[in-house]
Design a protein around this nucleic acid. Sequence first.
DNA 1: CGAACATTTGATGACCATCAAAGTGGGTGG
DNA 2: CCACCCACTTTGATGGTCATCAAATGTTCG
Lengths: 249, 249
Amino acid sequence: MKSTPILLQTQNLRTACANCSVLELCLPIGLNDSEVSRLDTLIPQRVKVKKGASLYRTADPLRSLYAVRTGFFKTCIVSLDGREQVTGFQMAGEMLGLDAISAEQHACHAVALEDSEVCPIHFHQLERLASQIPSLQHNLNKIMSREIVRDHSMLLQMGNMNADERLAAFVLNLSARMSTRGYSSRSFVLRMRREEIGSYLGLRLETVCRSIAQLRKLGLVHISARNVDILDMPQLKMFIAGCHRHGPE
Amino acid sequence: MKSTPILLQTQNLRTACANCSVLELCLPIGLNDSEVSRLDTLIPQRVKVKKGASLYRTADPLRSLYAVRTGFFKTCIVSLDGREQVTGFQMAGEMLGLDAISAEQHACHAVALEDSEVCPIHFHQLERLASQIPSLQHNLNKIMSREIVRDHSMLLQMGNMNADERLAAFVLNLSARMSTRGYSSRSFVLRMRREEIGSYLGLRLETVCRSIAQLRKLGLVHISARNVDILDMPQLKMFIAGCHRHGPE
DNA sequence: CGAACATTTGATGACCATCAAAGTGGGTGG
DNA sequence: CCACCCACTTTGATGGTCATCAAATGTTCG
């Protein structure tokens, strides 16, 4: 464990959702100016999290939810006997900590995969404010629901797709999220190691490598180290729809 | 497809959460009497769903969430190329439809596995009422969060457990939920077929059979047709904690 | 009671995990 | 700035687990 629990606090000046680059992806989406500034009051200061550091750990009491402002996180759970499962990767505009609401304590471990910055939102204050701002409550409901839909899609991948298909779906998912944030959907950089991709997809890291090689051989993507280039987006989408030969012919 | 979309409507008399046997497990938990009766007003009538019938289908517009009053459901999603994944089994006191909030339409297909009864709760009315009753909103948040935690636990099972362990975890999960509802945790009846268990666990039905045989051979459970008897609860729990020999010695 | 459906068990093979070793790249300190 | 080192990645060889195909047995319900 080289992760350090140190959270660097920054910016005593009032933070402002209104100026945030992911305003349109995040909790305040659709709120009017006055509502946004009321939400701002729940975020006294942003918090920087160094690469490799934990934002929170399993069983930490729920204090805040966290909106990722910049950077990249993974969340993982660990079974009683130490088996680890990455449950998600979170990028700018996405929320961390939703699984803590259920038992008032975090059910997973959140680690920054690069130097990152989050907006902590005190949860009980958020609930109170949400009861006064219907669209804020609705946004929170939608964000939680979206996470449920995403998880179900992962279950489909783990239950019904082979290694190559899972990797293709993973790459396409990242691609779509990059695109939503205004980055290229064709070319981007992976923030996580092969082992973490593997854990997320229910595969070993060697299998991830082999699937990368396979997709490259098919001319669908080129992945070298952490650099991803999607060469044939339509075919890649066809690939996960099962429209490809399962035999090598 | 033999499922019929017919929903039999019953009971014009006012329904009453207050008299419901799963009041303490369901959305109204912790509400006071007056709050419960306000929630009641959102449930004009209960709906019966025959075994094999669909409560809703993928892409149906979100109208209501559904609390299961009696019976048993499965939810499943289908990929573009027709691969099916069971995403959950729901019993009395559990909510159906949470995944529809995200896109205002259902993301899965809900089918009754036995004659069942649900309480439809008009979602937009629920949101409005929840903004007036903080503990109702909090309950909804907790229920959604619990679903997220459950899904993450399923991902751990699919990603890190072998077939025998998944089946053991599945049986233990049902056992705990039966117990919560006042039924025996040691002896109960499965409502789903082997194929549905398999889909849920990311296994083929034949593998489910073999894992059942394996757990029987180890003296942990006896499963015959749909009847489950847990013979050694502590050992069964140890089993999924990885505290068992992986080789046959 | 019988037909349709569900479950069980066996035989075989595919896919992926495991073990092993070589190759690559990034960060750090000299 | 370069070289070294360590962590990460890639590729190969082998075996185990689970999927597939097949056939027999059991169960349910009209």
